[in-house]
Nucleic acid binder design. Structure first.
Lengths: 105, 105
DNA sequence: TGACTCCATGTCAAATCTGACATATTATAA
DNA sequence: TTATAATATGTCAGATTTGACATGGAGTCA
């Protein structure tokens, strides 16, 4: 797990559109990254819709502002676990998650 | 994250039907566990459909037989990350994941 | 019976992720 | 401009997860 991490980190720059292409990402890696970006985006949407600051959201999910920022920016250090737990904590249903996921890239 | 872990471990017994009820799980916790169980189930389905052993699957995803077993049994020590990466590695599409997720519980 | 395959479960060092903190950057308002 | 809030980014000790290994149980076949 060394090259994979590097790729994820490099891919982090892509907040727009679907990832990969330039980087030599396998289909699974690309799908994984797109998944994370989709969930990131959804989390930010749900937060702003609720007119909450990152700090407020952080409190609600027992985390910190900086981690929320990383979540929303698609930082490679954030796991799917944390993203999904956060989405659930903010009120997303499993159906919401499914929608966000399948809409990915 | 202490009580949460305990609950997850206790909840592990539930392979059948939707989790929670007896345990004092918050809706998010219940949704999270159901999510994992849905993905576990799907992984096992895809593996058996391909007529692979856990050992063979483990090789394909660069993991071990024991971890595959834990994945499929909904063990609390397995993350969503690993489950999803494995599903992707086995050929699931984002759409497949979405379907598995929304079918949960 | 033994030999073999498959799956389950416990353990643990190494790898990864997390919350918290410091600090920087970017708004927005007065 | 200054001040203030919101967001971004880097770092790191502590917590969690991982692959690997050992081992046990269940089923099959000869």
């Amino acid at each position: 797990m060394k090259a994979a991490k590097k790729k994820k980190l490099e891919a982090k720059g892509w907040k727009v559109g679907s990832a990969a292409d330039f980087l030599a990402l396998s289909p699974e890696e690309a799908a994984y990254i797109d998944l994370k970006l989709s969930l990131s985006k959804r989390l930010k949407e749900m937060r702003t819709q609720k007119k909450m600051s990152q700090t407020a959201l952080a409190k609600e999910i027992h985390s910190s502002q900086s981690r929320v920022a990383k979540m929303e920016s698609g930082d490679a250090s954030v796991s799917l676990d944390l993203l999904i737990k956060s989405l659930l904590a903010v009120g997303a249903s499993n159906r919401d998650l499914a929608k966000a996921i399948s809409s990915g890239a």
